[in-house]
Design a binder for these strands. Structure first.
Lengths: 128, 128
DNA sequence: CAGTATCCGTCTGGATACTG
DNA sequence: CAGTATCCAGACGGATACTG
């Protein structure tokens, strides 16, 4: 899958990062400064360790977050956004802005017409 | 899945649309004006009828594209972006811009160190 | 503390074939 | 022309259990 979302490598790269669950929350949590694994888990909410670990790995590999290991009896690891990672904010803002627009567009048309069938409108992947 | 990507409904709404394969290309194709199903299929490229149909349905339902049926022996249908749909452009630009940045960030670190494996940079979900 | 290893269900996309 | 109906394989995310 994936083929080409917009026929543009950079667009795809962005989608590649933002298109996955939790990434947005992780970035948001890290915008306030560096956090340890546990703190991140707390900040993000319901994310499973494995998921957080996987995402963090991807982000680290892409150079969007840095991983700093702090040796010591209780090994600690600090994650922090890189400059590139911080750039996510502008995109998030643009998306949120457009998101509001399309949210309204959907409502006005048939997103939530009255009460009958409903569903199929906003549903998508539901929410587990 | 999906839970919360950024703890923000509008952000999620945007992801919901952009996060799916082909949507970007469809928007791009429609930016030049209305197109018929077949033309869209041509413009997008390798997309399967069913996929195009599904995406178009979603976009229509969300009020991002309009569907105009032109009766006649050969029934024709014209698809066109709505004002909300056109707003996609700003987001796409922001994403492309950031995409370039993270593409470089990834390369510099370990995305494409030299020549060996490569692939792991732009790959995402591999390629089937 | 900070992960990693496994296992499994769900959802999505793709190919093919058929219809108004 | 413009879709829709099926079927299928695989990717992805989630929960649980275990380790340095």
């Amino acid at each position: 899958m994936i083929h080409e979302r917009a026929g543009c490598a950079s667009f795809e790269a962005a989608m590649d990062v933002l298109g996955k669950p939790w990434t947005g929350l992780i970035f948001a949590a890290l915008e306030g400064g560096s956090l340890r694994f546990g703190e991140l888990r707390e900040a993000v909410g319901e994310i499973a360790d494995r998921m957080l670990s996987v995402r963090l790995r991807e982000l680290d590999q892409r150079g969007l977050v840095t991983r700093r290991v702090i040796e010591g009896p209780p090994v600690r690891v600090e994650y922090e956004l890189t400059a590139a990672g911080r750039g996510f904010r502008e995109v998030a803002d643009a998306m949120r802005k457009w998101g509001k627009v399309i949210l309204r567009a959907g409502e006005a048309d048939e997103g939530v017409p009255r009460a009958t069938s409903a569903t199929s409108a906003t549903r998508k992947r539901s929410r587990a």
